[in-house]
């Protein structure tokens, strides 16, 4: 039992940290600009592909440096040459549709450049060894590396936002966008900067996540919705909230997989037997493990009902 607990905890933490990297960029973008950037997962996917492509010629480490930069530039371009010209931005619906169209565009571009099959994005050799073995389960080094990168990312982002001047402006804009504009900061260029930063974070996540998850054109559509969940559950304007939400979801999902009990078992424990003819028999028979992938959405709905501003949110969406 303890071995399952430990390995699930490790898996959950790694998964959660990867989710955090994926969603921290959108937390910035969404909190500050209110843009529910559906193409965020597309940028993440581009990060994975760009890393693979550069890695082929210049090695993984160069790619790891360059991919976030390129994704940042792509993000800046999306804001500067796309979103900025979207009419009626206040309602945000046109923006959402614009980024939705963009996601299709990114997917098709990826298909055109890299084809439809998953690319063999293999773990770089320097990281391809089991770091340690616990209860007979080996723990690959690259997962530890992923952890290190995402924690490093969180710390440096946190410091940058708290300690630097531009960070303070961004932070202020996260919570009081109108006030920042009123104070005379060039909000449009701050917007481009935030979008670039958010996209660069997605690119970094893609660079790291590419070889754990499968780098295929369908990647963006599969991971897309979960990013919103984390942003909302974490709370607007809060990176720490996003971190906690990611870890929570990562760990909950991982542990749920282990639980093979259903409502029927619960009833049985309470001395109630449910017959197969009962109308909700099927519902009662669903194992917790089966529900693992929908846990984030359950959490989302509950959170929005109970506490709409999210875990550490400073204001309502």
């Amino acid at each position: 039992m303890i071995e399952v607990f430990v390995s699930s905890l490790l898996n959950g933490v790694v998964y959660g940290l990867l989710l955090f990297m994926l969603s921290s960029g959108l937390t910035l973008i969404f909190s500050m600009m209110g843009v529910l950037n559906i193409a965020h997962a597309g940028v993440f996917m581009l990060g994975a592909y760009i890393t693979y492509q550069i890695g082929k010629y210049a090695g993984f480490w160069v790619a790891l440096m360059l991919a976030p930069v390129l994704c940042g530039l792509i993000g800046a371009a999306i804001e500067r040459y796309g979103l900025r010209f979207v009419p009626n931005r206040k309602s945000h619906v046109p923006e959402i549709l614009f980024t939705f169209g963009l996601l299709y565009l990114i997917e098709e571009l990826v298909v055109m450049i890299w084809g439809r099959n998953p690319i063999p994005a293999t773990v770089p050799e320097a990281l391809d060894f089991p770091l340690f073995t616990l209860f007979g389960t080996s723990y690959p080094a690259y997962k530890a590396f992923m952890m290190a990168v995402s924690i490093g990312m969180f710390v440096s982002l946190y410091v940058a936002l708290k300690r630097t001047r531009i960070g303070l402006v961004i932070q202020a804009a996260l919570t009081h966008p109108q006030m920042v504009a009123a104070l005379g900061h060039n909000v449009p260029s701050v917007y481009v900067l935030v979008f670039a930063l958010g996209s660069a974070l997605a690119g970094l996540a893609g660079a790291i996540g590419g070889f754990t998850w499968l780098t295929a054109p369908t990647l963006a559509f599969t991971v897309g919705p979960i990013v919103f969940v984390i942003v909302i559950v974490g709370g607007l304007g809060s990176l720490a909230g996003a971190l906690i939400a990611s870890m929570l979801i990562g760990i909950l999902q991982t542990f749920a997989v282990v639980v093979d009990y259903s409502l029927r078992d619960l009833f049985a424990a309470l001395g109630v037997t449910v017959s197969a003819s009962s109308p909700l028999y099927e519902l009662y028979s669903i194992k917790v493990a089966q529900t693992a992938p929908v846990i984030p959405y359950l959490l989302l709905v509950l959170m929005l009902i109970v506490r709409p501003r999210g875990l550490l949110g400073t204001r309502d969406a």
Binding site: V4, S8, N11, Y15, T212, Q253, T254, A292
Partner: peptide, 13 residues
């Protein structure tokens, strides 16, 4: 499912 490691942990256990 993006991460199958929890399932593998279960299989191993």
């Amino acid at each position: 499912v993006q991460d199958f490691s929890p399932y593998v942990a279960k299989i191993k256990a």
